[in-house]
């Protein structure tokens, strides 16, 4: 039994404005609107589900606390997404220990063509694919997510992660190769099992 009927907000602008006025019902609706999408982002950037939870909560708190700064409400979706991504990166800047990144570009032979990776990715279950990304070292996982999935340029990545563009580029090259290697392994395993 519902004691209180939720307020209706006719548009996203009304909802955001109500959130800016700290109306609890609006904040609840806002949370419901973004929770699933942001969970997906957090799970991609995090190594484990627990870390994803930390990032998710920290990000949402930042979103609610900084919602007043949003002037262009039409771009709220991308703003919320960027807050989550920045939170994830900060999280790993705070917690990541120096990882030994010995992955060399020449470490594994290229046996597959680009179309093959497309096929492998298509065939893989999203959870399996997520697991492959989660297993990447933190810096590689960040750059794969930022560049390949979220579409940031290396210049933007360099700015977000406070590293030179070139570092981002080289990180990405290593990350991409490691990912392809893992995909290849997974593809072969899956092929052998099928």
């Amino acid at each position: 039994m519902k004691f209180f009927r939720s307020k209706k907000y006719n548009s996203l602008t009304e909802l955001v404005l109500a959130c800016q006025r700290l109306e609890p019902s609006a904040q609840t609706i806002f949370y419901e609107r973004y929770k699933a999408k942001l969970t997906g982002i957090c799970l991609r950037y995090a190594k484990t589900k627990m870390e994803a939870e930390d990032i998710f909560q920290e990000a949402f708190i930042k979103v609610f606390k900084n919602l007043n700064e949003v002037k262009d409400i039409a771009s709220i979706d991308s703003w919320v997404k960027s807050v989550v991504i920045r939170t994830a990166i900060n999280y790993y800047n705070r917690t990541t220990k120096d990882q030994l990144l010995h992955s060399s570009i020449d470490d594994f032979p290229k046996e597959l063509e680009s179309a093959d990776y497309d096929t492998i990715i298509e065939q893989l279950n999203v959870e399996v694919l997520l697991k492959i990304i989660n297993q990447l070292p933190d810096i590689y996982r960040m750059v794969v997510n930022l560049h390949l999935i979220d579409g940031y340029t290396h210049a933007e990545i360099g700015k977000i992660m406070s590293i030179p563009d070139s570092t981002s580029r080289s990180n990405f090259m290593r990350a991409r190769h490691l990912l392809m290697k893992k995909l290849q392994e997974k593809g072969i395993t899956q092929y052998e099992n099928s």
Partner: peptide, 8 residues
């Protein structure tokens, strides 16, 4: 890779 991952 980008297209495949984005789609996924």
């Amino acid at each position: 890779l980008q297209k495949a991952l984005k789609r996924k």
